[in-house]
Design a protein around this nucleic acid. Structure first.
Length: 574
RNA sequence: GCCGGCGUAGCUCAGUUGGCAGAGCAACUGACUUGUAAUCAGUAGGUCAUUGGUUCGAUUCCGAUCGCCGGCUCCA
């Protein structure tokens, strides 16, 4: 049992880092140095760029400081003393920091020759920091704003002992192997090439097949849950985007206009305006509500080049979009059922741990009436509560146009991803003057809920690849069974098996090449094919199959029926 | 977009005082007829990201551009 929480250890390590940096670069200006989720960082303003060698040197110096077992002590001063002390040290960023802090008492922590403005807490002696490792250096704006100068941020991690550090670094290595960009290449699922453009995905046959399976499942489930499909074009006139407000609030994220017959058209960054126009095409009665329009709508958004990241952040992607338009009375039930639907859908893909975050009305910029906000926030909260789901409230975290529930899923190695989102929209119904005729014969404004379960198919697919480490469950595997022959004499038997399996709807691959069985197994394993059916003379004679399951190994000899049943059983959704 | 790093064959990577460009895997051809994670031999494959400059000579040194990677900012 460690004496101090990791956070304290890491925060102390950040101080030691700053101390080591000042040792080599005495004129360095210090930014901030907090503990973060998996370690710590410290920002520095330096004249030269740090190299890997610098990092090594700094790390060694840190080790020395830790060994020296310096004592951490603290003292407080008033603002004036703090200011003059920092001025003397020429720490302009720290001065800026003090400037923005209230109160007149400032704590400094001191260890060895190093003093830093800091509210603590810290370990008592540097040796209690345990094991540290510097990971990388990168740029970071002072106070996170592009308008400020860019500092150099050194990231590191610290643990109370060497063993924990080692196992953390090992886990990082393991996580790297799951990287969907790497697996996308080795499993031949997709590519992104500069010849097309950054953030634009080419889906290869295997990836496209998996996506097809995801989409068909999605479509079936939506029909079962009383959604109506709509389809909308990829571009629309400027006036439409003017009316929706996208051109005033979202233009920097949109691709530039296209000129057609002297009219400006824009590629869609969202599907909502189209769905609203479907709704508005005819007057609606309260009897028709709720209306649920769903579309796998491909949108394009301009993203700054530096933020693109594999499938997780792209410029062209397909949202599994839906808009639920309902009356006030229907709102609660709709939220509840869409939440339940979302959970069931995510579970089908192996995501069992799901967290909900309710984001409420921002304090300042928002549209719509407070009463409506309150009602919808209540509806959201009640839905999560009534389903007995754990959730957190993000006060003021909603969009300007409505409150929302963000759903985060935890993958196989405990990382959280946000895909699903359920949001109210008070803005667009107003802008488009959406109405329905109520029982009283009067026009009423409906509630609109915008939701996506996968978020984007690209991102969801990327998360899925990492979650499964490319070992897709049988129902999603592009090839479900690979039939491997021991020698060429048994090709006929193997072919018969292949065509029988195909008949039953199994995606099967046949390897009758003149390679050794070991080579074929290695190849099928590398492709992460769930089932290997190995057949040789023995199997032909006894009308059996030697079954090998990916990641499990040899399952032994089975009758053909048994083997088929095993595959078919696992091929079912979920 | 900003800071830093990196761009050599389809893939993974060698290639330092600047002197004709290399390996393994994959592909193709042939031989081997194989029993649970790599049989052997051969063939083909590169404007060393692009583009300027320095030099007798540049994959190597310098600059610019493009792209990728790690972050910042932003986000489905």
């Amino acid at each position: 049992m460690a004496k101090f929480p990791l956070e304290t250890i890491r925060h102390s390590a950040a101080h030691v880092l700053a101390q080591a940096v000042l040792h080599f670069f005495p004129t360095a200006q210090l930014g901030i140095g907090p503990a973060i989720e998996n370690g710590f960082y410290y920002d520095f303003d330096l004249e030269t760029s740090l190299t890997d060698e610098d990092l090594n040197k700094i790390e060694q110096k840190m080790e020395e400081i830790i060994k020296e077992n310096q004592q951490f002590t603290s003292y407080s001063t008033d603002k004036e003393t703090a200011n003059s002390f920092l001025k003397e040290k020429n720490q302009t960023y720290k001065l800026d920091l003090i400037d923005s802090l209230d109160g007149d008492s400032f704590t400094f922590f001191e260890n060895g020759p190093f003093v830093d403005l800091c509210k603590g807490p810290h370990v008592e002696q540097t040796r209690e920091i345990g094991a540290i490792k510097l990971l990388r250096v990168s740029g970071a704006y002072w106070r996170g704003s592009e308008k400020n100068p860019m500092l150099q941020r050194i990231y590191g991690t610290a643990f109370s002992n060497r063993k924990d550090l080692k196992s953390y670094l090992k886990r990082m290595e393991e996580a790297k192997k799951r990287d969907h960009r790497l697996l996308g290449k080795t499993l031949d699922l997709f590519s992104i090439t500069e010849e097309v453009g950054g953030g634009l995905v080419l889906w290869h046959p295997k990836g496209a097949l998996i996506r097809h399976l995801i989409e068909s499942y999605w479509k079936t489930e939506h029909l079962n849950n009383d959604y109506d499909f709509v389809l909308s074009p990829h571009v629309g006139k400027a006036d439409l985007w003017e009316k929706s407000g996208h051109l005033s609030f979202y233009e920097e994220n949109m691709f530039s206009a296209i000129d057609v017959d002297d009219q400006k058209y824009y590629v869609k960054p969202m599907n909502c305006p189209f769905h609203i126009l479907v709704y508005k095409n005819k007057p609606k009665s309260y009897r028709e509500l709720p209306i649920r329009y769903a579309e796998l709508g491909t949108v394009y958004r301009y993203e700054r080049s530096g933020v693109l990241h594999g499938l997780l952040r792209v410029r062209g992607f397909t949202q599994d979009d839906a808009h639920i338009i309902c009356t006030e009375e229907q709102m609660k039930e709709e939220i509840k059922s869409v939440t339940l639907f979302t959970i069931n859908m995510l579970k089908a893909f192996g995501f069992e741990k799901i967290k909900f975050y309710l984001a409420t009305r921002p304090d300042e910029k928002y549209v719509g009436e407070i009463a409506h906000w309150k009602d919808s926030e209540d509806a959201l909260e009640e839905a999560i509560k009534s389903l007995g789901l754990p959730y957190e409230i993000d006060h003021g975290g909603g969009a300007f146009y409505g409150p929302k529930i963000d759903v985060k899923i935890e993958d196989a190695i405990g990382r959280e991803w946000q895909c699903s989102t359920i949001q109210f929209d008070f803005n667009l119904p107003e802008r488009f003057d959406m109405t329905y005729i109520g029982q009283d014969g009067e026009k009423h404004r409906p509630y609109m809920i915008h939701r996506a379960i996968f978020g984007s198919l690209e991102r969801f697919f990327g998360v899925l690849v990492e979650h499964y480490e490319g070992n897709f469950p049988v129902w999603l595997a592009p090839t479900q069974v690979s039939i491997l022959t021991v020698n060429e004499k048994v090709s006929h038997y193997a072919k018969k098996l292949a065509s029988d399996l195909k008949q039953k709807g199994v995606r099967v691959d046949l390897d009758t090449s003149s390679e050794k069985i070991g080579y074929k197994i290695r190849k099928a394993s590398a492709e992460k094919i769930p089932y290997m059916f190995i057949v040789g003379d023995k199997e032909v004679e006894s009308n059996t199959i030697s079954v090998r399951r990916h990641q499990k190994g040899d399952l032994g000899v089975m009758t053909v029926d048994q083997a088929f049943l095993s595959v078919l059983d696992e091929s079912k959704t979920m």
